[in-house]
Simulated assay, not measured.
Amino acid sequence: MSSLLAVLDAVDAQPFAVGLRLRSYELLGELTGRTVVDAGCGGGRAVGELAERGARAVGVDLDPEMIAVARQRWPAGEFQVGDACELPLHSGSVSGYRADKVLHALADPARAVAEARRVLAPGGRAVLLGQDWDTIVIDSDDPRTTRGLVQAKADSLPSPHAGRKYRNLLLDAGFTDPVVEVHTGVFTDDTALAVLHRITDEQSWLAEQAERARTNRIFVAVPMFLVAARR
């Protein structure tokens, strides 16, 4: 958990990630005095930021350790251990739903999106945000191996292509008026190495990437899919 949290912290601090979170908050609509749930909240940063913007922000995560960290870091938020497919919330009790880098980790993303519709009040908005694991771009001296490593990582995940399916998942669940955006994060510093270590532990390949980082030649680009729709 600590290594994942360290990577999330490093990525979340990037200006690109800060801007992307702000855009996701904008797509939720008016926040003041309204209840918003962040499903798969991790360390709770979005919950804390939403609370700072006047929302009653509720974070839900399946990992009790993540929830403990979130409660310590962001005391203004509310946090509960729970499953994105079975949220501990009453039907129609929230005005906004957000899931950031979550659906690719679920065996059945459609269940989570149906659950989002259940907890949202009529007119509420759902915002889905995350990467498609086959679209990560990495500069390398060995592109064939690189393609294989990215594909192997994608194949190890329950739903690696959830990002490209966000719009249709929302439509299939009965949501309307989808807004689709793609924002690309570009990493050219040590954060890129942290991202690559989450993809593979193949040492010779990572050694080349470490040398690229040392000589200011590392390049990783991650398209992030952002889709919002109305219940």
Rank of each mutant, 00 (worst) to 15 (best):
G92H: 08
T215D: 11
L193C: 02
I218C: 02
D61H: 06
V150I: 15
A221G: 02
D132H: 03
W205M: 03
Y166K: 09
K165G: 02
P109A: 00
R21D: 15
C41L: 06
V36K: 06
V182L: 13
G33N: 11
G96M: 11
I218P: 00
H197T: 09
T191A: 14
S2L: 13
D141Y: 01
V150A: 01
G44V: 07
R167P: 01
K101G: 00
R212S: 10
V119Y: 10
W74T: 03
V58F: 05
L8S: 06
G33Y: 08
Y97L: 09
E26M: 13
T32S: 13
R98P: 00
L50F: 00
E49H: 13
V179P: 02
E181V: 04
V58R: 12
W205R: 00
D172K: 14
E86F: 04
H90R: 15
Q72V: 04
L50I: 09
L106S: 09
V182W: 02
S204Q: 08
L193K: 00
R212M: 13
Y25F: 15
D141S: 13
E26W: 05
P223R: 03
R217C: 04
T188D: 11
A213R: 06
S156N: 09
G44T: 05
A229N: 06
L206C: 10
G130A: 09
E202L: 11
R217D: 10
Q209N: 05
G96L: 10
V36D: 06
S24G: 15
L169D: 07
V182Y: 05
E115G: 02
P75C: 01
L106E: 12
V119N: 12
W133P: 00
V37C: 05
P143S: 01
D190S: 04
R167A: 12
H197E: 15
V60N: 07
L22K: 12
V60S: 08
L157C: 07
R56E: 14
D9A: 08
L8R: 14
R21L: 15
L157K: 08
V180R: 12
P143N: 01
A57K: 10
D139W: 01
I138A: 05
T176D: 14
F225C: 06
A121G: 04
L226Q: 14
I138F: 04
L89C: 13
A210R: 11
V220Q: 09
D155A: 09
E211F: 00
V81Y: 04
S91Y: 01
A210N: 01
L8W: 03
G42T: 05
S95G: 13
I136Y: 03
D201L: 08
G82W: 07
R53Q: 15
A39F: 03
P178E: 08
Q72S: 14
